[in-house]
């Protein structure tokens, strides 16, 4: 289970990374960053030249995939760079640029998201990498992020923003260039959220959805009913073991019900990543998760 172990062609993770760019999206707390790291790890192990892109905040990826190339793109920096490239450099010297960025961002909502997507598109077009994995924004924001180009195309009649929006839309619409990996966990609210986000992306973005990743899947075999298990002569901690079994059985029942519901509501295949009994993931865990990924059959 070393991180260097080659991923066989049967690894279901291969199906998540068939385009040049994959954007990983999911509600806060479901493990988007973990899935980004696992996908990047699997692709690198299969011999692909991988770039990992993280957007604002966090910066955990360098720790999770220390041997891979990680770029950080901040919306504010990308917008500032974009404005400087379009004639603001000389003027902005005399002004506090944040104010200008605020007014441009408000005048043309989504321009900050668009310039981030524009940078990703530029990295993709450079042809330097076989695969670019983007640790995307949280699910609610994912739809806004991905629809920014379409929105600006409607709002802006001509000029550089419109050109940029057209280029980004072309990338999003081409399944060979870009696809979206949605991440959830087998619990009620995250499953509701991923179903809503998937529908919104289908209706409003038109980008290709890969199989959905279900993170923190508990792979435990069904536990026997603690009421029927004899514990022999043991006395101490038997009640603890029974309580623990009841708890795990109830959580497994929630998991099974939520996976059924997700399967009923979405046509995509489901890829399961196991829950690890640790609070902090290391690069070795990322390798283990990538080797262990399986499809729900």
């Amino acid at each position: 289970m070393s991180p260097e172990a080659p991923v066989s062609n049967e690894s279901p993770l291969t199906d998540l990374a068939t385009s040049n760019v994959v954007v990983v999206a999911g509600k806060g707390g479901v493990g988007k960053t973990t899935v980004t790291a696992v996908l990047a790890r699997a692709a690198a192990a299969a011999g692909r030249h991988v770039l990992v892109v993280e957007l604002d905040g966090k910066q955990h990826l360098r720790r999770l995939v220390p041997d891979l190339e990680v770029r950080h793109i901040s919306a504010a920096d990308a917008l500032e760079e974009y404005l400087n490239d379009h004639g603001f450099r000389r003027i902005a010297k005399r002004l506090n640029t944040t104010g200008v960025i605020d007014v441009v961002g408000t005048a043309a909502p989504g321009i900050d998201d668009l310039v981030v997507l524009g940078k990703i598109k530029q990295l993709e077009r450079s042809g330097t990498w076989d695969l670019i994995v983007v640790d995307g924004p949280a699910a609610g924001h994912a739809v806004t992020f991905l629809t920014s180009a379409a929105g600006l195309l409607d709002a802006v009649g001509s000029g550089p923003v419109r050109d940029q929006a057209e280029d980004v839309l072309a990338m999003l619409a081409d399944p060979a260039r870009c696809s979206i990996v949605l991440v959830t966990v087998p619990e009620t609210t995250p499953v509701n959220e991923v179903v809503e986000t998937a529908a919104a992306i289908e209706d409003r973005v038109g980008a290709r959805l890969t199989p959905i990743v279900v993170n923190r899947f508990d792979p435990t075999e069904p536990l026997p009913d603690p009421g029927t298990v004899p514990f022999g002569r043991a006395r101490a901690q038997v009640d603890d073991a029974r309580d623990a079994a009841r708890f795990r059985r109830a959580r497994l029942a929630v998991q099974a019900a939520e996976l059924d519901r997700l399967r009923a509501d979405r046509p995509e295949r489901l890829i399961l990543l196991s829950e690890l009994p640790v609070a902090e993931l290391t690069p070795d865990h990322v390798g283990a998760l990538s080797d262990d990924a399986r499809e729900l059959t």
């Binding site: 404005l83 379009h86 004639g87 603001f88 000389r90 003027i91 002004l95 200008v100 007014v103 441009v104 408000t106 005048a107 043309a108 321009i111 709002a155 802006v156 009649g157 001509s158 000029g159 550089p160 923003v161």
Partner: peptide, 19 residues
């Protein structure tokens, strides 16, 4: 105003007029 002209070039003159 150069700064307004620059904003207008990026986002378009209609959008700038709204602002």
């Amino acid at each position: 105003q150069p700064i307004l002209r620059a904003i207008g070039r990026v986002v378009g003159s209609d959008v700038l007029a709204d602002a």
